[in-house]
Each structure stands twice: as C-alpha cells, then as structure tokens.
Design a protein around this nucleic acid. Structure first.
Lengths: 262, 262
DNA sequence: TACTAGGTTTCATTATTTGAAACCACGTTT
DNA sequence: AAACGTGGTTTCAAATAATGAAACCTAGTA
C-alpha cells in the first residue's frame, strides 16, 4: 500500500511505523520481520531506535511492540494546526443539526480519504473513531469531490494508487469511469456517492477549496436509500456550499494567529 | 524539553516534528531554522523528507509547514492498540455517571502525563481536546500515582526531567518531597492532588497496574474545593479501584485478539 | 543597479546505516 | 543430557546516506 522505496533512513523508519499500525494489535518482532522487506539486523535496529524515541512501545510482558503514545501527542498538535476540524466544528454542528443527517469532514492523505471529523445526530461523537479513519477516495463522495478539483499533475500521481475494488455493484471500477465522473463533479461543484462504497448508503459531497482553488478538504451529508434519495440530497447542496464557503473563508485568515510563539 | 541528542537521523527527524508541533501553527522554514540546532542544509533536507513522507505538509500559499495528516492516521492506530482508552471507555462512562465528577485516564509519555481520555459530565467529550494533551507528572494525581509504582530504575531516569515548577503554593518543588509522597502513595495504593497544579482543583487517583505490577496508566476523579474535599474524594477510592482493577483485568486478555493478521 | 533575506543546491568529507553471519538464550525434541 | 530450532541480539567491514560550509538562486527593497 505504501509506495516508499525512498532510500532514506527516516523513510524506512516511518514505513515500519505504518506496518506496525496495519497490524492493529501489538506485534512481535518476528511477525514484523516477516511482513517487512528489511533484513533482520536492520529492522531490529530500526525498531530499537523508534522505541527509544517513544514512537513504539515495547511490552516486556507480551514481548511485543505497539505504536507509542508520543504519536498521540503529535497527532493532537497535527489535528489542531493542520486539519480543518477545529475551524469546521461549529459549522458541522449546525449542518448536522439542520439536516438531521450524518456529516463527514475529510481531507486527503496521500491517495486516500482521511476523515478528520464527523457528526452523527444519532450517536454522540466518538473520539478517534471518526477522526483518523481512512477510506478509499475513488468510491466515496468526499473522495471524489476532492479528486475532481486536484491539479492534473497530482491526480495522475495518485490515480494509479486507487485500488478500484468493487465494493458494490455501483462502484466505479476503472480510471476512465472515475475520470468521467470527476469531470462532471468539477462542472457542478458537487458530487454523489451512489451506493458505491456500501449498499443503501448515499451521500452528496462538496469540496472545500482555498481562494486559489487548492483542495483543502471535502464535506458530505450522508444518508440511506431507506430514508431519502439523491434528488432530496441535492436540495441540500446550497446549504452545504454555504458551509464549505464559510469554512474556506475562515481558513484564509486562521493560518496565522501569529500569537507569539511558545 | 526533548532529551534527544541521539545521533540517529530518525531521531533528528522526529525532533523536527516535535519542534513543528511546539509552534502550534504553520511555521516557516526560517523560523524553524532559528529554533533548531541543525544547519540550514541539513534541516532543509530533513523537512523535505518529512514532507515527502506526509508527516509534514507544506502550504505553498503561506510558504509554511504544518504537521501532516499522516500523523492523525497513525495516531488513530496508536490510540486503538496502545492506549487504554478503548478498553476503559465503558468503565469511565460508568464511573463518571456515578460520581458526577470529571474522570481522567492518563498514561506516561516519557516523563510527562498524557491524557488519553476524559469524561466530564458537564460538557460532552471533545475530540482530541482531551486525548493527546500532556501535563506535568510531579504535580498531578495521575502523574504521581504512576510515578509511585514505577521501578526505581525508570523513576530515577525520569525524575531529573521533572521541572518542579511551583504552579501553586501546594506544588511539591523538589525530588525529596515528591519521593516522600510517592512512598505514601505506594503504601496506600492511591494518591491525591492537593491543589498542586491549579488552585481549588483537587483529585484522587489510582494507578492501573498489570498482573506483574507494571504501570499501565492511572485513573483520577477530579473536583474542586468548592464542591467537595479530600476526605469525600477518598470515599470514592474503592469504587475507583474497582474500575482500575476491571480495566487491568481486561487489558490482560485484550492484547491478543489474535485474529489472523491483515 | 546593488543589496538582502529566504530558500535551494552542490560536493567532498564524515559517519551512520547496512546486512550477512555469528552468536546467544531457551524451550523442545530425541 | 545432548542436539535442535526458533526468536532475538550483536559484530564488523563495506556501502551508502547524511553532513555542512559555501555557493547559488530568486524575489523583493533600497
């Protein structure tokens, strides 16, 4: 999944972190060794370093490694400064309240969609259960909305990384089909998820664009075919765009509170 | 704050990440250069690498760097597998509901306390606002509860890293005083925060220990002198210990769902 | 035009990383 | 008890990547 191969030591170290993350549970050295392209000694020292640095934690009881809490601390900062979530929060609240539907805020992480916040009127906000989750870009509303507004150069870089797994019978399964839809989305300024990722789940999504047209993220309102339909969701577009515009506007200033550092 | 100095390249790279994080806002190359011990060229390439790897994001509009979203993704995994939060969640809910007070779940990150979850009956759970925050160990209930149960070797390593800043008139300001209290806490199995960090804020905290006595984290119930007092909080100790024991017990198995990897 | 500040690249030197293999510790088998 | 095997740790010369001083851009200013 990760197209590293970049020679650098830090690249490898981060790659190891990713691999540990993929296990989703504490992992033994030998397991990781089997899953890594690195020779024993190299991997060993890499993990030593990462452990010493607090990015990994070694559990002596279980003889296994997990991601370290230092990551949580870093991510806290990342989330605050580099994600749209803190700004978007009140807007999401309002939108979710008004529509009564689930609202997703996402950004691009490499070739995938990373959900940075979520409002679900039914259940209360679950920490990290939404923030931090990743999903495919080619078959989600937010994903396509972002892809559609990417410069061709970037798009052609991440297009080959799309897996085009056929989740449902509506999933777009090749680049041509996707590109056709992206053009459409670009023209309209919004796009749909037509049960492409999960059956009965539909959504309408709008990109969040900077003044200069750079893709900052995307916002979607999700529902089910049991409750509503695409036409009804389309009615919400003006309201959603009102939100995305507001968020984009705030982002413009936001970036420099310029309070004295420290 | 960071006692790196470890020659490795990854150490330096992570150090750079920390420094970026400390700014709490997008930061220009020159700013970071001024704050770093590394020469121009070195820092430059370090940041190039980190940016290429998605750990930093460069905003071309603002000519500045922020922490990348890849961190959020990694932290999501870290939080799930390496923190007590997912397990403790229901227990925290129950404890908070019963006591009607704020409940904190913390773990040690290097020499600091890292809050991994929190329940505040008043306000709803705020994403990341609690998870990811760090605080001093020597003057918080959870901090001292954890320090008290650390093996001497580890303790003597992190003791010199305590800042002993006198937040309030009750703050312990030297190692001797702290060690005396740690002994007491170890004897009782619980400890207090006697307005040591913030005036009027008091809490009672219990460590979460593994079967073998390893420190996994700590749990505290916090209140104010306006509402209650230490004696009343002490009454809650059995209830809190019931919770910590339950969490510790669950942790024992938890670590290996042993579902087929991938 | 000259000057400056911020950022990028070069290149010979340095020192870290590499990885094959040896080694160690332990629990298992014969 | 000796031999074996697996999982983990260390060694050491060779290969490679990181270093940092300085040169070099680029764009905005005097």
């Amino acid at each position: 999944m990760n197209v590293d191969a970049s020679g650098g030591t830090v690249g490898k170290a981060l790659d190891v972190l990713d691999r540990v993350a993929e296990f989703n549970r504490p992992v033994r050295f030998a397991e990781l060794l089997a899953a890594s392209p690195y020779p024993k000694g190299t991997l060993y020292r890499l993990m030593q370093t990462l452990t010493r640095e607090g990015m990994l934690v070694f559990d002596p009881d279980r003889q296994s490694y997990s991601l370290g809490v230092r990551l949580v601390r870093l991510a806290h900062a990342a989330w605050r400064t580099s994600s749209l979530a803190p700004i978007a929060r009140p807007h999401l609240d309002a939108l979710a309240a008004e529509t009564g539907e689930t609202v997703h805020l996402a950004q691009l992480d490499q070739a995938q969609v990373l959900y940075v916040d979520k409002r679900n009127t039914a259940e209360p906000v679950e920490m990290y259960s939404s923030a931090g989750k990743v999903g495919p870009a080619y078959c989600t509303g937010v994903g396509k909305a972002m892809l559609a507004h990417l410069p061709e150069e970037t798009l052609s870089q991440i297009m080959p990384l799309q897996l085009f797994h056929k989740f449902t019978e509506h999933t777009l399964t090749d680049e041509a089909a996707l590109r056709a839809q992206l053009a459409e989305i670009r023209a309209h300024g919004y796009g749909f998820d037509r049960e492409e990722h999960e059956p009965t789940i539909i959504c309408v999504a709008c990109p969040i664009l900077s003044e200069r047209g750079r893709v900052l993220g995307a916002l979607s309102v999700t529902s089910t075919t049991a409750r509503t339909n695409l036409a009804a969701l389309e009615q919400l577009v003006p309201r959603i765009q009102q939100t995305t515009t507001a968020i984009a506007a705030e982002v413009q200033d936001w970036r420099f509170p310029d309070t004295v550092a420290q």
